[in-house]
Design a protein around this nucleic acid. Structure first.
Lengths: 205, 205
DNA sequence: TTTTGATAATTTTGTTTAAATAGTCAGTTT
DNA sequence: AAACTGACTATTTAAACAAAATTATCAAAA
Protein backbone atom coordinates (compact mmCIF):
# COMPACT_ATOMS: atom_id res chain seq x y z
CA UNK A 1 0.00 0.00 0.00
CA UNK A 2 2.38 2.67 1.26
CA UNK A 3 5.20 3.61 -1.05
CA UNK A 4 7.26 5.69 1.38
CA UNK A 5 10.33 4.60 3.31
CA UNK A 6 10.25 3.27 6.87
CA UNK A 7 11.73 6.52 8.11
CA UNK A 8 8.98 8.42 6.35
CA UNK A 9 6.33 6.21 7.87
CA UNK A 10 7.75 6.70 11.35
CA UNK A 11 7.72 10.46 10.98
CA UNK A 12 4.24 10.33 9.56
CA UNK A 13 3.16 8.40 12.61
CA UNK A 14 4.76 10.92 14.92
CA UNK A 15 2.94 13.73 13.20
CA UNK A 16 -0.34 11.84 13.43
CA UNK A 17 0.19 11.27 17.12
CA UNK A 18 1.05 14.91 17.85
CA UNK A 19 -1.89 16.08 15.77
CA UNK A 20 -4.19 13.67 17.57
CA UNK A 21 -3.18 15.02 20.97
CA UNK A 22 -3.78 18.59 19.87
CA UNK A 23 -7.11 17.85 18.18
CA UNK A 24 -8.23 15.83 21.17
CA UNK A 25 -7.31 18.53 23.63
CA UNK A 26 -8.27 21.70 21.80
CA UNK A 27 -10.49 20.59 18.91
CA UNK A 28 -9.94 21.15 15.21
CA UNK A 29 -10.35 24.90 14.92
CA UNK A 30 -8.30 25.67 18.04
CA UNK A 31 -5.19 23.82 16.97
CA UNK A 32 -2.81 25.39 14.51
CA UNK A 33 -0.36 23.72 12.21
CA UNK A 34 2.34 25.75 13.94
CA UNK A 35 1.51 24.21 17.28
CA UNK A 36 1.63 20.68 15.95
CA UNK A 37 4.96 21.39 14.30
CA UNK A 38 6.17 23.06 17.48
CA UNK A 39 5.30 20.01 19.57
CA UNK A 40 7.60 17.96 17.36
CA UNK A 41 10.22 20.70 17.00
CA UNK A 42 9.69 20.71 13.29
CA UNK A 43 8.91 23.42 10.85
CA UNK A 44 5.33 23.87 9.84
CA UNK A 45 6.35 23.47 6.21
CA UNK A 46 7.30 19.88 6.89
CA UNK A 47 3.76 19.05 7.83
CA UNK A 48 2.77 20.09 4.36
CA UNK A 49 5.42 17.80 2.99
CA UNK A 50 3.70 14.84 4.64
CA UNK A 51 0.09 15.94 4.40
CA UNK A 52 -1.54 18.04 1.69
CA UNK A 53 -3.46 20.24 4.11
CA UNK A 54 -4.86 20.52 7.59
CA UNK A 55 -8.13 18.79 6.91
CA UNK A 56 -6.33 15.87 5.28
CA UNK A 57 -4.16 15.57 8.36
CA UNK A 58 -7.26 15.50 10.51
CA UNK A 59 -8.84 12.87 8.29
CA UNK A 60 -5.68 10.77 8.46
CA UNK A 61 -5.89 10.80 12.25
CA UNK A 62 -9.57 9.94 12.03
CA UNK A 63 -8.78 7.04 9.76
CA UNK A 64 -6.24 5.74 12.22
CA UNK A 65 -8.71 5.97 15.10
CA UNK A 66 -11.35 4.21 13.05
CA UNK A 67 -8.91 1.43 12.28
CA UNK A 68 -8.17 0.96 15.97
CA UNK A 69 -11.87 0.98 16.79
CA UNK A 70 -12.62 -1.63 14.18
CA UNK A 71 -9.75 -3.78 15.39
CA UNK A 72 -10.99 -3.48 18.94
CA UNK A 73 -14.48 -4.48 17.93
CA UNK A 74 -13.31 -7.44 15.89
CA UNK A 75 -11.26 -8.76 18.79
CA UNK A 76 -14.17 -8.54 21.17
CA UNK A 77 -16.75 -9.96 18.80
CA UNK A 78 -14.67 -12.87 17.59
CA UNK A 79 -15.75 -14.78 20.65
CA UNK A 80 -19.14 -14.16 22.17
CA UNK A 81 -21.22 -16.36 24.39
CA UNK A 82 -24.65 -15.15 23.33
CA UNK A 83 -26.38 -12.49 21.31
CA UNK A 84 -26.83 -10.16 24.21
CA UNK A 85 -23.17 -10.31 25.11
CA UNK A 86 -22.26 -9.54 21.51
CA UNK A 87 -24.36 -6.40 21.46
CA UNK A 88 -23.21 -5.37 24.90
CA UNK A 89 -19.68 -5.55 23.57
CA UNK A 90 -20.61 -3.31 20.67
CA UNK A 91 -22.34 -0.84 22.94
CA UNK A 92 -19.44 -0.67 25.34
CA UNK A 93 -16.78 -0.44 22.69
CA UNK A 94 -18.54 2.31 20.82
CA UNK A 95 -19.24 4.11 24.04
CA UNK A 96 -15.63 4.06 25.11
CA UNK A 97 -14.54 5.19 21.68
CA UNK A 98 -16.84 8.19 21.75
CA UNK A 99 -16.08 9.15 25.33
CA UNK A 100 -12.34 8.86 24.86
CA UNK A 101 -12.29 10.95 21.70
CA UNK A 102 -15.13 13.31 22.42
CA UNK A 103 -13.24 16.55 21.84
CA UNK A 104 -11.66 15.18 18.74
CA UNK A 105 -15.08 15.09 17.13
CA UNK A 106 -15.78 18.81 17.50
CA UNK A 107 -14.98 18.96 13.80
CA UNK A 108 -18.12 16.93 13.20
CA UNK A 109 -20.30 19.21 15.25
CA UNK A 110 -18.94 22.39 13.70
CA UNK A 111 -19.18 21.19 10.10
CA UNK A 112 -22.44 19.44 10.90
CA UNK A 113 -24.14 18.99 7.57
CA UNK A 114 -21.24 19.36 5.14
CA UNK A 115 -18.59 16.93 6.25
CA UNK A 116 -16.06 15.96 3.59
CA UNK A 117 -16.91 12.80 1.69
CA UNK A 118 -13.84 11.06 3.09
CA UNK A 119 -15.21 11.39 6.62
CA UNK A 120 -18.48 9.88 5.51
CA UNK A 121 -16.59 7.02 3.95
CA UNK A 122 -14.86 6.31 7.25
CA UNK A 123 -18.14 6.46 9.14
CA UNK A 124 -19.68 4.13 6.60
CA UNK A 125 -16.76 1.74 6.93
CA UNK A 126 -17.23 1.58 10.70
CA UNK A 127 -20.93 1.02 10.26
CA UNK A 128 -20.31 -1.72 7.72
CA UNK A 129 -17.96 -3.51 10.09
CA UNK A 130 -20.49 -3.37 12.88
CA UNK A 131 -23.14 -4.69 10.54
CA UNK A 132 -21.00 -7.57 9.36
CA UNK A 133 -19.89 -8.63 12.83
CA UNK A 134 -23.26 -8.30 14.49
CA UNK A 135 -25.31 -9.84 11.71
CA UNK A 136 -22.89 -12.76 11.78
CA UNK A 137 -23.66 -13.06 15.47
CA UNK A 138 -27.38 -13.08 14.73
CA UNK A 139 -26.93 -15.70 12.06
CA UNK A 140 -24.93 -17.89 14.41
CA UNK A 141 -27.59 -17.65 17.09
CA UNK A 142 -30.30 -18.38 14.56
CA UNK A 143 -28.40 -21.43 13.35
CA UNK A 144 -28.00 -22.59 16.93
CA UNK A 145 -31.75 -22.26 17.23
CA UNK A 146 -31.58 -19.75 20.07
CA UNK A 147 -33.67 -17.27 18.11
CA UNK A 148 -36.10 -17.46 15.22
CA UNK A 149 -34.61 -17.84 11.75
CA UNK A 150 -33.97 -14.39 10.31
CA UNK A 151 -34.02 -13.86 6.58
CA UNK A 152 -32.33 -10.46 6.69
CA UNK A 153 -29.93 -10.18 9.64
CA UNK A 154 -28.43 -6.90 8.36
CA UNK A 155 -31.81 -5.26 8.50
CA UNK A 156 -32.26 -6.34 12.10
CA UNK A 157 -28.84 -5.11 13.14
CA UNK A 158 -29.34 -1.81 11.37
CA UNK A 159 -32.61 -1.36 13.16
CA UNK A 160 -31.23 -2.21 16.56
CA UNK A 161 -28.26 0.11 16.11
CA UNK A 162 -30.64 2.91 15.20
CA UNK A 163 -32.77 2.18 18.23
CA UNK A 164 -29.77 2.11 20.55
CA UNK A 165 -28.58 5.34 19.06
CA UNK A 166 -31.96 6.84 19.86
CA UNK A 167 -31.49 6.09 23.53
CA UNK A 168 -28.34 8.16 23.54
CA UNK A 169 -29.72 11.01 21.48
CA UNK A 170 -32.88 11.38 23.50
CA UNK A 171 -31.06 11.33 26.79
CA UNK A 172 -28.85 14.13 25.56
CA UNK A 173 -31.45 16.40 23.97
CA UNK A 174 -33.86 16.04 26.87
CA UNK A 175 -31.46 17.30 29.46
CA UNK A 176 -30.37 20.40 27.57
CA UNK A 177 -26.75 19.31 27.60
CA UNK A 178 -24.48 18.62 24.71
CA UNK A 179 -22.80 15.64 26.20
CA UNK A 180 -24.25 13.28 28.75
CA UNK A 181 -22.88 13.70 32.23
CA UNK A 182 -21.51 10.83 34.23
CA UNK A 183 -24.90 10.29 35.86
CA UNK A 184 -26.61 10.07 32.48
CA UNK A 185 -24.11 7.60 31.15
CA UNK A 186 -25.37 5.00 33.58
CA UNK A 187 -28.94 5.80 32.69
CA UNK A 188 -28.21 5.38 28.99
CA UNK A 189 -26.42 2.14 29.59
CA UNK A 190 -29.25 0.74 31.69
CA UNK A 191 -31.83 1.79 29.14
CA UNK A 192 -29.85 0.20 26.36
CA UNK A 193 -29.56 -3.07 28.17
CA UNK A 194 -33.29 -3.08 28.75
CA UNK A 195 -33.93 -2.30 25.09
CA UNK A 196 -31.56 -5.06 24.11
CA UNK A 197 -33.41 -7.47 26.39
CA UNK A 198 -36.81 -6.71 24.94
CA UNK A 199 -35.53 -6.61 21.40
CA UNK A 200 -33.77 -9.94 21.62
CA UNK A 201 -36.81 -11.49 23.26
CA UNK A 202 -38.77 -10.15 20.30
CA UNK A 203 -36.47 -12.14 18.04
CA UNK A 204 -37.15 -15.39 19.88
CA UNK A 205 -39.88 -17.90 19.20
CA UNK B 1 -58.22 31.05 33.31
CA UNK B 2 -58.21 34.01 30.92
CA UNK B 3 -59.25 37.35 32.34
CA UNK B 4 -59.64 39.26 29.07
CA UNK B 5 -62.85 39.97 27.18
CA UNK B 6 -64.14 37.84 24.32
CA UNK B 7 -63.16 40.56 21.87
CA UNK B 8 -59.66 40.50 23.25
CA UNK B 9 -59.48 36.74 22.95
CA UNK B 10 -60.62 36.87 19.35
CA UNK B 11 -58.00 39.43 18.44
CA UNK B 12 -55.37 37.47 20.29
CA UNK B 13 -56.32 34.45 18.24
CA UNK B 14 -56.07 36.42 15.03
CA UNK B 15 -52.62 37.59 15.96
CA UNK B 16 -51.57 34.06 16.83
CA UNK B 17 -52.83 32.83 13.47
CA UNK B 18 -51.07 35.54 11.48
CA UNK B 19 -47.88 35.01 13.45
CA UNK B 20 -48.10 31.25 12.89
CA UNK B 21 -48.39 31.71 9.14
CA UNK B 22 -45.37 33.99 9.05
CA UNK B 23 -43.24 31.80 11.33
CA UNK B 24 -44.23 28.73 9.36
CA UNK B 25 -43.40 30.31 6.03
CA UNK B 26 -40.29 32.33 6.83
CA UNK B 27 -39.06 31.04 10.19
CA UNK B 28 -38.55 32.99 13.37
CA UNK B 29 -35.69 35.27 12.45
CA UNK B 30 -37.05 36.14 9.02
CA UNK B 31 -40.40 37.39 10.20
CA UNK B 32 -40.72 40.86 11.66
CA UNK B 33 -43.30 42.20 14.03
CA UNK B 34 -44.11 44.82 11.40
CA UNK B 35 -45.01 42.14 8.89
CA UNK B 36 -47.31 40.34 11.28
CA UNK B 37 -49.00 43.62 12.13
CA UNK B 38 -49.19 44.50 8.45
CA UNK B 39 -50.91 41.21 7.61
CA UNK B 40 -53.66 42.18 10.05
CA UNK B 41 -53.64 45.88 9.12
CA UNK B 42 -52.74 46.74 12.68
CA UNK B 43 -49.99 48.79 14.17
CA UNK B 44 -46.97 46.98 15.47
CA UNK B 45 -47.53 48.63 18.84
CA UNK B 46 -50.74 46.70 19.25
CA UNK B 47 -48.86 43.43 19.11
CA UNK B 48 -46.99 44.60 22.15
CA UNK B 49 -50.29 45.36 23.80
CA UNK B 50 -51.22 41.69 23.50
CA UNK B 51 -47.83 40.05 23.84
CA UNK B 52 -44.86 41.23 25.87
CA UNK B 53 -42.29 40.53 23.14
CA UNK B 54 -41.55 38.58 19.99
CA UNK B 55 -40.31 35.44 21.66
CA UNK B 56 -43.36 35.32 23.91
CA UNK B 57 -45.56 35.57 20.84
CA UNK B 58 -43.68 32.70 19.28
CA UNK B 59 -44.03 30.66 22.43
CA UNK B 60 -47.76 31.39 22.55
CA UNK B 61 -48.09 30.00 19.02
CA UNK B 62 -46.01 27.02 20.01
CA UNK B 63 -48.25 26.42 23.01
CA UNK B 64 -51.31 26.50 20.79
CA UNK B 65 -49.78 24.02 18.37
CA UNK B 66 -48.82 21.75 21.23
CA UNK B 67 -52.39 21.88 22.52
CA UNK B 68 -53.74 20.88 19.15
CA UNK B 69 -51.21 18.07 18.88
CA UNK B 70 -52.12 16.76 22.29
CA UNK B 71 -55.81 16.95 21.46
CA UNK B 72 -55.22 15.12 18.22
CA UNK B 73 -53.31 12.40 20.00
CA UNK B 74 -55.90 11.98 22.72
CA UNK B 75 -58.66 11.60 20.17
CA UNK B 76 -56.79 8.95 18.28
CA UNK B 77 -55.60 7.04 21.32
CA UNK B 78 -58.94 7.01 23.12
CA UNK B 79 -59.95 4.06 21.03
CA UNK B 80 -57.33 1.61 19.90
CA UNK B 81 -57.72 -1.99 18.86
CA UNK B 82 -54.30 -3.23 19.95
CA UNK B 83 -50.95 -2.06 21.18
CA UNK B 84 -49.41 -1.85 17.78
CA UNK B 85 -52.22 0.33 16.47
CA UNK B 86 -51.82 2.63 19.44
CA UNK B 87 -48.15 3.19 18.74
CA UNK B 88 -48.73 3.49 15.03
CA UNK B 89 -51.16 6.29 15.83
CA UNK B 90 -48.54 8.02 17.91
CA UNK B 91 -45.92 7.64 15.21
CA UNK B 92 -48.20 8.96 12.50
CA UNK B 93 -49.56 11.83 14.54
CA UNK B 94 -46.14 12.99 15.61
CA UNK B 95 -44.84 12.60 12.11
CA UNK B 96 -47.60 14.72 10.63
CA UNK B 97 -47.10 17.33 13.30
CA UNK B 98 -43.41 17.66 12.55
CA UNK B 99 -43.81 17.60 8.77
CA UNK B 100 -46.59 20.15 8.80
CA UNK B 101 -44.74 22.59 11.04
CA UNK B 102 -41.20 21.94 9.98
CA UNK B 103 -40.26 25.51 9.17
CA UNK B 104 -41.86 26.76 12.31
CA UNK B 105 -39.25 24.88 14.30
CA UNK B 106 -36.28 26.70 12.81
CA UNK B 107 -36.22 28.57 16.10
CA UNK B 108 -35.27 25.29 17.76
CA UNK B 109 -32.46 24.61 15.37
CA UNK B 110 -31.02 28.11 15.58
CA UNK B 111 -31.14 28.33 19.37
CA UNK B 112 -30.14 24.68 19.64
CA UNK B 113 -28.79 24.31 23.15
CA UNK B 114 -30.24 27.33 24.89
CA UNK B 115 -33.96 27.25 24.31
CA UNK B 116 -36.07 29.24 26.77
CA UNK B 117 -37.37 27.24 29.71
CA UNK B 118 -40.93 27.75 28.57
CA UNK B 119 -40.24 25.86 25.37
CA UNK B 120 -38.78 23.00 27.35
CA UNK B 121 -41.88 22.98 29.50
CA UNK B 122 -44.07 22.63 26.42
CA UNK B 123 -41.90 19.83 25.06
CA UNK B 124 -42.07 18.12 28.41
CA UNK B 125 -45.83 18.48 28.50
CA UNK B 126 -46.12 16.80 25.11
CA UNK B 127 -43.84 14.04 26.21
CA UNK B 128 -45.82 13.55 29.41
CA UNK B 129 -49.06 13.24 27.47
CA UNK B 130 -47.54 10.66 25.17
CA UNK B 131 -46.28 8.76 28.16
CA UNK B 132 -49.62 8.79 29.93
CA UNK B 133 -51.62 7.74 26.89
CA UNK B 134 -49.26 5.06 25.72
CA UNK B 135 -48.50 3.58 29.10
CA UNK B 136 -52.25 3.37 29.67
CA UNK B 137 -52.42 1.42 26.43
CA UNK B 138 -49.72 -0.91 27.65
CA UNK B 139 -51.48 -1.41 30.97
CA UNK B 140 -54.75 -2.17 29.20
CA UNK B 141 -53.09 -4.75 27.01
CA UNK B 142 -51.34 -6.27 29.99
CA UNK B 143 -54.63 -6.48 31.87
CA UNK B 144 -56.23 -8.14 28.87
CA UNK B 145 -53.41 -10.63 28.99
CA UNK B 146 -52.17 -9.86 25.49
CA UNK B 147 -48.70 -9.08 26.78
CA UNK B 148 -46.70 -9.92 29.89
CA UNK B 149 -47.54 -7.97 33.04
CA UNK B 150 -45.36 -4.87 33.14
CA UNK B 151 -44.41 -3.34 36.46
CA UNK B 152 -43.26 -0.03 34.98
CA UNK B 153 -45.17 0.85 31.80
CA UNK B 154 -43.78 4.39 31.68
CA UNK B 155 -40.26 3.05 31.50
CA UNK B 156 -41.23 0.84 28.57
CA UNK B 157 -42.94 3.66 26.70
CA UNK B 158 -40.04 5.99 27.31
CA UNK B 159 -37.68 3.41 25.96
CA UNK B 160 -39.73 2.69 22.88
CA UNK B 161 -40.14 6.39 22.10
CA UNK B 162 -36.39 6.82 22.35
CA UNK B 163 -35.83 3.87 20.08
CA UNK B 164 -38.33 5.12 17.51
CA UNK B 165 -36.70 8.51 17.65
CA UNK B 166 -33.40 6.86 16.87
CA UNK B 167 -34.77 5.48 13.63
CA UNK B 168 -35.56 8.99 12.48
CA UNK B 169 -32.30 10.52 13.63
CA UNK B 170 -30.11 7.89 12.03
CA UNK B 171 -31.94 8.06 8.75
CA UNK B 172 -31.36 11.79 8.68
CA UNK B 173 -27.74 11.94 9.76
CA UNK B 174 -26.71 9.04 7.53
CA UNK B 175 -27.88 10.65 4.34
CA UNK B 176 -26.24 14.01 4.93
CA UNK B 177 -29.55 15.82 4.74
CA UNK B 178 -31.21 17.94 7.35
CA UNK B 179 -34.68 16.73 6.70
CA UNK B 180 -35.64 13.35 5.32
CA UNK B 181 -36.83 13.38 1.75
CA UNK B 182 -40.07 11.83 0.65
CA UNK B 183 -38.30 8.57 -0.19
CA UNK B 184 -36.73 8.40 3.26
CA UNK B 185 -40.02 9.01 5.00
CA UNK B 186 -41.29 5.68 3.78
CA UNK B 187 -38.07 4.00 4.83
CA UNK B 188 -38.34 5.49 8.31
CA UNK B 189 -41.95 4.45 8.60
CA UNK B 190 -41.23 0.90 7.50
CA UNK B 191 -38.32 0.63 9.90
CA UNK B 192 -40.42 1.92 12.74
CA UNK B 193 -43.17 -0.56 12.10
CA UNK B 194 -40.60 -3.35 12.10
CA UNK B 195 -39.09 -2.08 15.33
CA UNK B 196 -42.54 -1.87 16.84
CA UNK B 197 -43.23 -5.43 15.78
CA UNK B 198 -40.12 -6.84 17.35
CA UNK B 199 -40.43 -4.70 20.45
CA UNK B 200 -44.03 -5.68 21.10
CA UNK B 201 -43.20 -9.32 20.51
CA UNK B 202 -40.49 -8.85 23.10
CA UNK B 203 -43.17 -7.78 25.55
CA UNK B 204 -45.21 -10.93 25.02
CA UNK B 205 -44.93 -14.21 26.84
C1' DT C 1 15.02 13.01 -0.14
C1' DT C 2 14.05 15.66 3.74
C1' DT C 3 13.85 20.03 5.85
C1' DT C 4 13.41 25.02 6.45
C1' DG C 5 12.87 30.31 6.38
C1' DA C 6 10.70 33.57 3.99
C1' DT C 7 6.69 34.87 1.76
C1' DA C 8 2.08 34.71 -0.47
C1' DA C 9 -2.82 33.67 0.00
C1' DT C 10 -6.64 33.00 2.73
C1' DT C 11 -9.37 33.07 6.78
C1' DT C 12 -10.56 34.91 11.08
C1' DT C 13 -11.12 38.75 14.21
C1' DG C 14 -12.10 43.29 15.51
C1' DT C 15 -13.98 47.92 14.54
C1' DT C 16 -16.75 51.24 12.71
C1' DT C 17 -20.91 52.82 10.60
C1' DA C 18 -25.43 52.36 8.60
C1' DA C 19 -29.66 50.05 8.34
C1' DA C 20 -33.22 47.15 10.09
C1' DT C 21 -35.88 45.69 13.70
C1' DA C 22 -37.47 45.28 18.45
C1' DG C 23 -39.58 47.55 21.93
C1' DT C 24 -41.70 52.01 24.48
C1' DC C 25 -44.85 55.64 25.41
C1' DA C 26 -47.62 59.82 25.33
C1' DG C 27 -51.64 60.61 23.52
C1' DT C 28 -55.92 59.62 20.37
C1' DT C 29 -60.03 56.95 19.33
C1' DT C 30 -63.70 53.99 20.54
C1' DA D 1 -61.49 52.59 30.84
C1' DA D 2 -59.96 49.50 26.94
C1' DA D 3 -58.18 49.29 22.46
C1' DC D 4 -55.28 51.34 19.52
C1' DT D 5 -51.63 54.32 17.00
C1' DG D 6 -47.65 57.33 15.32
C1' DA D 7 -43.54 58.82 16.53
C1' DC D 8 -39.84 57.84 19.16
C1' DT D 9 -35.71 55.20 21.41
C1' DA D 10 -32.91 51.09 22.12
C1' DT D 11 -30.99 46.91 20.28
C1' DT D 12 -29.64 43.91 16.96
C1' DT D 13 -28.04 42.76 12.57
C1' DA D 14 -25.34 43.70 8.21
C1' DA D 15 -21.81 45.73 5.53
C1' DA D 16 -17.37 47.46 4.83
C1' DC D 17 -13.01 47.74 5.99
C1' DA D 18 -8.48 47.07 8.29
C1' DA D 19 -5.49 44.23 11.19
C1' DA D 20 -4.04 39.94 12.83
C1' DA D 21 -3.71 35.14 12.69
C1' DT D 22 -3.31 31.09 10.17
C1' DT D 23 -3.02 28.23 6.23
C1' DA D 24 -0.43 27.08 2.35
C1' DT D 25 3.57 27.58 -1.10
C1' DC D 26 8.26 27.50 -2.77
C1' DA D 27 13.03 28.26 -3.72
C1' DA D 28 16.89 26.96 -1.59
C1' DA D 29 19.69 24.47 2.11
C1' DA D 30 21.02 20.18 4.64
Amino acid sequence: MSTGSDQQDIKREKILEAAYQRFLHYGYSKTTMNEIAGDLSLSKALLYYYFPDKSQLYIAVMRKLAGEYIQDLENKLNTFVNLKEAFVSQIDTQHNFIVKNYNFFDFFRVNEQNLPDTIWEIITEIHQTEMVLLSAAIKTEADKGNIKPVDNPEQIVDLLLDALHGVRVSAVSHKKVMFPQKEHLDEIHTKRLLLLDIFIKGLMY
